[in-house]
Amino acid sequence: MRAAPPLAKGFPDISGMTVARQVHWQRWLAAAAIVIVLAAIGRAFVNGQIEWTYVSRFLTAKVILEGITNTMVMAVLAMSLGIVLGVVVAIMRLSSNPVLTSVAAGYTWLFRGTPLILQLLLWFNLALVFPTIGIPGLWSARAVDVMTPFLSALLGLGINQGAYTSEVMRAGMLSVDVGQYEAAKAIGMERLRALRRIILPQAMRVVIPPLGNEFIGMVKATSLASVIQYPEVLHAAENIYYANSRVIELLIVAGSWYLLVVSILTPLQMLLERRFARGALQINR
């Protein structure tokens, strides 16, 4: 190796020196402050009027376990419905057909524009407006029998979710370069096939982080279905504390379950992201 040429006079010789480690004393200070605050909060809870034995007893109670199962079943089903609706509505929204575009825009407007809890109550009380529902001449039933808490919650949560998901999907589709549509057309693809084979797989990469967000939101939004008697985990907790008055203890039980579920979902999202990053630069070196 050639020796570096000498510097002019006045420049210090720094050859062989290393960069000293920085002391981040502000970080230590901040961490200490946080530990003190956390300790204070923890102490307050330990000394507060919380019967921790109730928390541990009910954490794995049968009703609570059934409740969290129902929460997850509803979250997955409603999210699936939301994604299907979202993809269809996003495709409609981006079509050149003005009828489809306005139907899609109207759907998004209506279901994003009203509170979710109101929509749940509407679905659940549909029988007040339409005592019997069905297809004339083919099938009919009493609305009270059809609109069970389960179906009302599924429709309410899923259709509402579809309105939000459609915007996420639309953003994802718009993020794909227009050259990709043209290349797909140039090899003879029609619009729907190009969307399915070329555009949507690329949009997924962009769409998964916000969809993960939406799904976590959905897990928690299922708690609203407690108002229409769907037996999810918050509903189960409420039923117990109506009987034993251990309100905070049971809310902690329900809260712990939500936290656990959300903690499991985050790494799952990572796996999905990696799956759809195929061909993207960062994973292929």
Binding site: Q180, E182, I187, G188, M189, G279
Partner: peptide, 22 residues
């Protein structure tokens, strides 16, 4: 129109390969 396009092959300035396919 898609059927008529099959008679022509197009090469783009910016390649436009499908990035998620080998």
């Amino acid at each position: 129109i898609a059927r008529q396009r099959l008679k022509t092959g197009m090469v783009f300035q910016r390649f436009n390969l499908f990035p998620h396919r080998t």
